[in-house]
Design a protein around this nucleic acid. Structure first.
Lengths: 253, 253
DNA sequence: ACGTCGATCTCGAAC
DNA sequence: GTTCGAGGTCGACGT
């Protein structure tokens, strides 16, 4: 940890941090250039730079969620003195070829630390989990629904989320979305249904399962003769936690 | 700037930072919970928390480009003591309703600073700029191409990038992509072309303009009777900088 | 407010 | 390696 270091002191510390694969936090006045998939320039201003142990690097402005410049994990991190008085950090990626250069003319502080984080991140109620909930409890779609397969491949048209049959034996194609459904998802489902119609000469129903159907997609859905089944994330969560409880009680005897 | 502060010291500093709308950087051992559009939990580990003056907050693990938890700008930031010995940071957003809770049991350091950054960020050669380049130099599409309108609305099918005519007076629909084109973009163009065919009973050509056409999209393109015109970002950049030079020389007289 | 679309998207999984 | 779809996507722009 250094406060108001000279460029020379900073250089030494950064080289140490990079070679030892430690996490670096740096606040200072800098400008930056990026050249690669696109190109960008950013003039002088106070920013925060974070270089992680996995050799990813982020440049954050004092506002906004997203970094203004960055390089993904695995890049090559270099540092040197530029123009005699500026500290230059270069982050180079080779595939695709991209270079980020950050020039500092003043440094507020540098912090170097070794962070240990082995914890498991768990995100609940994703589309995958909605599918599992339907697998456990097919009536979430409708009474008598019978799932036959999950993530079926249909060649150039991609995948359906669930294929099954309704109580009358009709083929049912299901598209699951965790977010309110717009035209995109309806068209996507339609492509699957069309692809299956080309293969099977039978009655086929297409159902979008999601928390909500957007108003602008309603007409399209009707025009394509598809259906919508509302399913809340809370409901999925309930089904999944019930399953979990059951597994625990089975385990306990 | 505080190193190894007590929970009480940290609390005071954070409350000051939040009320004064300053940038906060904090490294420590924490766990977190998120509930909102989805829900997530993350166990104990060393992480970096950044709370900005615009009341956005990021939680970074020691690896990866993306924050593991976050809250976008404008959220409500609160801090308190939880379970007698833990520092709790709550970040609450109301639309949509989302709550992020971060519990610290140890704090390595806290840095608070006022960052000033008025610089303009300039990103070069986006799709918008490719469109401008074609507007300036229509032969980038083909000899004799005549742009008629840009970003034309076609109701439920969305927008075309450029509408125009070729040298024989045929209507031309153009879809611009800055990245290699896959099936998605081809299908998107096809939707536009179909939508126009429904309105106009004339010969219509659909052209995808992009740096590259992916192999998997070639068959689909041919099957739908659409065309591909390669256009590199460099070429667009040249045209745009030439235009800029011209504007400067016009300005100089 | 909602809807649409681009992004240096990132990330992961499947092939 | 490439390709593809999901994301608490974010952010910008339009209605």
């Amino acid at each position: 940890m250094l406060t108001d270091p000279s460029i020379q002191e900073a250089l030494k510390l950064l080289q140490k941090a990079f070679s030892q694969r430690r996490t670096l936090i740096l606040a200072g006045n800098c400008r930056s250039e990026y050249l690669g998939r696109a190109s960008s320039t950013l003039g002088w201003g106070d920013r925060l730079v974070i270089a992680k142990a996995d050799r990813s690097i982020l440049v954050h402005r004092p506002a906004g969620y997203e970094p203004v410049n960055w390089q993904p994990p695995g890049c090559l991190l270099q540092t040197e003195i530029a123009d005699r008085s500026e500290l230059l950090i270069k982050a180079i990626r080779s595939q695709p070829r991209e270079i980020l250069s950050i020039f500092f003319r003043n440094i507020n502080f540098i912090a170097i630390c070794s962070l240990v984080d082995k914890a498991q991140f768990a995100l609940h109620v994703t589309e995958e989990q909605m599918r599992k909930a339907i697998q456990i409890e097919p009536t979430l779609v409708e009474e008598g629904f019978l799932p036959r397969s999950f993530e079926e491949d249909f060649g150039e048209s991609g995948f359906t989320d669930i294929l099954g049959e309704d109580s009358r034996g009709n083929t049912v194609v299901i598209e699951i979305k965790r977010n309110p459904v717009g035209r995109d998802a309806v068209l996507q489902l339609n492509r699957y249904v069309e692809a299956i119609r080309r293969q099977i000469d039978r009655e086929i129903r297409g159902i979008v399962v999601a928390p909500k159907l957007r108003r602008n997609a309603q007409k399209l859905l009707a025009a394509l003769n598809l259906e919508f089944k509302p399913l809340s994330l809370e409901k999925c969560f309930d089904v999944l936690s019930m399953q979990k409880d059951r597994r625990i009680s089975e385990f306990l005897g």
